[in-house]
């Protein structure tokens, strides 16, 4: 059955797209559509006009001065396979290969994953630990905003009406011996929405102390969160048993999970602690 929209417009350039989004009432951009098509069908999101981004050149991973820029229309499959991403942001590559199943990964875009603003979005925790920023465009110009400030709640972001995600910027990762992980927990191995997910990244010094520690989690709060208290506690410490235990305790104040049909809050707290502990154990090795 058709999804309930009245019009599709197909801009050829970004500027055209921005004008259409600004001028068409009740319009929404559509790229891969893997979330939006279901939401339109179910009435969870609605639109009169879809602005189809297919004709725009928004896909691709490009090296820039300070890191890379991943175009908003880059698919999860392309990210998961990209050699540079796999080498320097392995948690992101790992997460991209766990978004839905392969046919979803071949269609779903990074920009769509962000715009959808699910608390459980798998690509987000790895981007948070990469200190990613989002480049937004509108007819009045562009702005770049830290990803950590991008989400407002389930399904909502700070984007103004008519604003479009153009790209995600990943600054070059810090040098040194880096441990980086992404793990998600669900009741089956593939094609599952995370009950809890965690991305961790730390530089391990020769003396075993951790620096520039970054931990982010999905599905444990209304938005994906950085575990700032945990990070502060770990800075400069060795992840021994006592430190790990304290980190697990502090983590509980960084997250605010709820009971929902996918998991009870208590499980999410415990599983988040386990994932953090395992990440730190990996840093300890």
């Amino acid at each position: 059955m058709d999804v309930p929209v009245q019009r599709v417009v197909r801009p050829r350039t970004l500027d055209e797209a921005l004008v259409m989004l600004a001028e068409q009432p009740r319009s929404r951009p559509i790229a891969g559509g893997t979330d939006l098509m279901v939401q339109l069908r179910d009435g969870r999101r609605s639109a009169d006009t879809l602005v189809d981004l297919d004709g725009l050149d928004l896909a691709g991973v490009h090296e820039v001065d300070l890191g890379v820029e991943i175009g908003a229309a880059t698919t999860m499959d392309a990210i998961a396979r990209h050699p540079l991403v796999r080498r320097r942001w392995p948690a992101l590559a790992e997460a991209a290969a766990l978004v839905g199943a392969w046919p979803i990964q071949c269609r779903a875009t990074l920009g769509g994953n962000l715009a959808n603003a699910s608390p459980a979005a798998d690509a987000v925790p790895p981007l948070l630990v990469a200190d990613a920023a989002v480049r937004l465009a509108s007819p009045s110009g562009e702005r770049t905003i830290a990803l950590e400030r991008f989400f407002r709640g389930p399904g909502t972001t700070v984007m103004a009406p008519g604003e479009l995600i153009v790209a995600v910027l990943l600054p070059a990762p810090s040098a040194g011996r880096v441990v980086e992980r992404f793990v998600k927990v669900g009741p089956r191995r593939e094609q599952i929405i995370s009950m809890v997910s965690l991305a961790g990244r730390a530089v391990v010094s020769a003396d075993g102390t951790l620096h520039d520690v970054r931990v982010a989690l999905g599905a444990v709060a209304p938005i994906p969160v950085r575990a700032r208290r945990v990070e502060a506690h770990l800075e400069g410490r060795r992840p021994d048993a006592a430190t790990r235990r304290e980190a697990a305790a502090r983590l509980q104040a960084d997250i605010a999970p709820i009971d929902d049909l996918r998991a009870p809050a208590a499980y999410r707290r415990i599983a988040a602690a386990v994932l953090l502990d395992r990440f730190l154990e990996a840093c300890h090795g």
Partner: peptide, 21 residues
């Protein structure tokens, strides 16, 4: 950790749900 999370706020700061915008 479940019990730790529900301890009075005097022991731990109250949880926030995300960065302050």
């Amino acid at each position: 950790v479940v019990e730790a999370a529900t301890r009075p706020a005097t022991e731990h700061e109250p949880a926030t749900v995300g960065p302050r915008a």
